[in-house]
Design a protein around this nucleic acid. Sequence first.
DNA 1: CGAATGATTGACGAATATCAAGCTGCGTGG
DNA 2: CCACGCAGCTTGATATTCGTCAATCATTCG
Lengths: 245, 245
Amino acid sequence: MSAIDLNKAPVPNPFGTLNPCAACTVRDLSICQVLNETDLQRLAEIATTMEIAARAPILDEGEDASYLFNVTGGTVKLYKLLPDGRRQITGFLYGGDFLGIAMNEQYAYSAEAVTGVTLCRFPRKKFEHLLTVLPNLEQRLLSAASNELVQAQDQMVLLGRKTAKEKIVSFLLALSRRLEARDKAPSPVHLPMSRSDIADYLGLTTETVSRTFSALKRNGDIRLLDGGKVELPDIEALTEIADGY
Amino acid sequence: MSAIDLNKAPVPNPFGTLNPCAACTVRDLSICQVLNETDLQRLAEIATTMEIAARAPILDEGEDASYLFNVTGGTVKLYKLLPDGRRQITGFLYGGDFLGIAMNEQYAYSAEAVTGVTLCRFPRKKFEHLLTVLPNLEQRLLSAASNELVQAQDQMVLLGRKTAKEKIVSFLLALSRRLEARDKAPSPVHLPMSRSDIADYLGLTTETVSRTFSALKRNGDIRLLDGGKVELPDIEALTEIADGY
DNA sequence: CGAATGATTGACGAATATCAAGCTGCGTGG
DNA sequence: CCACGCAGCTTGATATTCGTCAATCATTCG
């Protein structure tokens, strides 16, 4: 059974005849950015908007890749499991991110909602057909894939060669840079995911994550606010820590 | 200065008016596979074939990404460095692989020839222009990027969650599967790269790599032949080791 | 208020890194 | 042709980071 069935039923056209993209708050961040009115309409015709509750599965590794998604709100985690239960989170997705570039006929990873999530779902076959007639969209997707690969390589450096402290600080800085890229203040950053999620993303244990946060706090490098917010008082200094100078 | 300048001068058209792709031994493995005669000719017009000596640099991280490449022979390593010299090899490329998907205006990583390497070089601007008029090629590139992302995620699991033994065995099996995908015998596999390269690819030290090979050999899981070849007597058994059953 | 879940802290142990010493194979030059 | 030297590989002894096991604390939600 598809994991998606466990969630709230999709709403095929909640806006009546109106294009649902008109209300999309992350359009300019998403792959839809490159589409004109007409083309956007064509994409909207195959799209279904959905809401997923926090902790609910979105898709499972190995499952037939029948759908692709735009994340329009909330936080999603992507992960892979080893047979004995060890888990590696390969990425977090936020509003504007595309979910489903990295797959063949089956999904290469599982995806689960970290917070409540809103999605825009596309049947893969129809989406792939659209790609052939909307060259802009295909270009944009290639560019997204290229960016993801660059990120993936940074993550390999982190996982393979950085210390626990460097990993944590790199993670916080990546979130901070993401805020900056969207013209928001680079601090504080928000951590919607658990310590255990952070650990599985950075190749650590929850205990080490916790201890490292405590040590950074003790040293004045970060300040832990409530609501999972973290203040970064000196981003320059943190940048040096992250790269191990 | 561009790293490429250090190498043997490129040969713009070593085949006279003949299409150099006619002689290409890896065409069916490369992105060129999807091109017909006419389109192949257009790609060939912007291509330059090159030879790079073992250990010579091909490109440097941060450098303007002026060229993209097809690897037509030999082994290439891609890597990133931390300021203090720690190195993470993010991938090895072999004949048929495309070099340059993961970049923006600058290369995201450095590339160096492990063995003697032959390359097919394309000026990026011209290549990108070709993409807009050869939809097949763009699709193929997107598909290549998608595959690379899947691989990248496997590598994250390896780096973040596997033991030294699991890492080494996973690496050997990946090489073996590559052989199989090309209809060759899955064993023995050839390791053209040094222990130190393997270590930097797997997030280990050379000493740990060496010790782990010795332990696997002692246990009869592998046999080290000369010429850097490794025999895998029981691939089933190794598969279980690789995933930590 | 109590139970459950997640976060933090502590004590200890294990996997792998580090430091150091040989070993091997290969190219070079006498 | 052989000996030397060098680079890479292997092996050993020790150190260190981080994981494991366990207890306490904090927060949320019935």
